[in-house]
Simulated scan of single mutants.
Amino acid sequence: MNDTSTSLHGAEASPLGKPVAYRDTYAPELLFPIARQLKRDEIGVRAEALPFCGEDLWNAYELSWLNPRGKPVVALAQFRVPADTPRLVESKSLKLYLNSFNQSRFADAAGVREAIARDLSAAAGGTVGVAVWPLTGPEGERPRRDFASPQGICLDELDIDIDSYQPDPTLLGAGEGIVSETLYSHLLKSNCLVTGQPDWGMVVVRYTGPAIDRAGLLRYIVSFREHNEFHEQCVERVFCDISERCRPQRLAVWARYTRRGGLDINPFRASDGEQRPDEAMEIRQ
């Protein structure tokens, strides 16, 4: 059954699961930050000694504002929130915030980018990278998105029995010998921490170390199926559980979650020095 714990997780006062009147003029106060440490305490992660580096990559598909003459501009945007910022931004509040640009006038896309970067950085407590790409820019500058599968081994065809649907790190294990490989699965499903709505995604594990038991890893990924937690928190839990149970020398974990409300979230956590994944989209995004 779903994890419906009533313990404080920081999102109790957020707009999630509540009727909200949309604002269509610039309103940075709509952003709702949540302390990361509230959930990191559950997995034994200390703020002063993070076991990972990384970022949360957000893609926004519903951004519009008015130019100085009142004509709408539409754009895509991308936000990079460093994993070491003390706060994440709740996704519904970000959607509401982006909609507040709809009837606001800006001189150009640079002004919009500067406003978003300022507001997200203040909410997260650190520098957030922001890019904004109008759809009607010069021919060579118009945004594009690429779809691709990870360069690795998909676990989803393994013929296994599964009966655990809450995160169970005891399913993880590793054997002898050192390997370097990338394993991935499209079978990741978790649920929103507040509303319980399903979140669908692909998760990728790239590591060097003792060979991870593939059947156990797939069972572990599927074990999130009835678990309630935000995207960023799920990926951090996966990273910490694999680190503890499998003892890799190097590890990177990232997820590509399907979009909701015009946003997709792609958390990445890795050992220091690990290369950031490419930005190719998962086919369901």
Rank of each mutant, 00 (worst) to 15 (best):
L16F: 01
P167G: 05
E62L: 12
M202I: 03
R259L: 08
E176Q: 10
T6K: 15
F52K: 07
L16S: 13
P68Q: 13
G177Y: 01
L50M: 10
T25A: 08
F239C: 10
N191A: 09
I34D: 04
P277N: 09
K92Y: 05
Y61H: 12
V179Q: 09
A109H: 13
G262T: 11
P143T: 11
P134I: 02
E55Y: 11
C234S: 13
R237V: 03
W58T: 15
E114C: 04
G10L: 06
G129P: 01
Y184F: 15
G54F: 01
G44E: 05
G44T: 05
S149I: 01
A211F: 03
G261F: 07
L63N: 08
G273W: 03
E42R: 14
P198Y: 08
G44Y: 04
A215K: 02
D84A: 09
Q275L: 14
V128W: 01
A49V: 02
R276N: 00
A77F: 00
V130F: 00
T208E: 15
A123I: 03
K71P: 00
T4F: 11
G173D: 06
P198C: 06
R69F: 03
R247C: 05
Y220W: 04
Q285F: 00
S7Q: 12
E29P: 00
L251I: 08
P134E: 03
A148N: 10
S149D: 15
Q78D: 08
S180F: 03
Q233D: 13
Q103M: 13
A123Q: 04
A27N: 05
W65V: 02
I178L: 15
D168S: 11
G125K: 07
D159K: 14
C192M: 09
Y61I: 03
A13Q: 13
S7V: 09
L88I: 15
I265R: 05
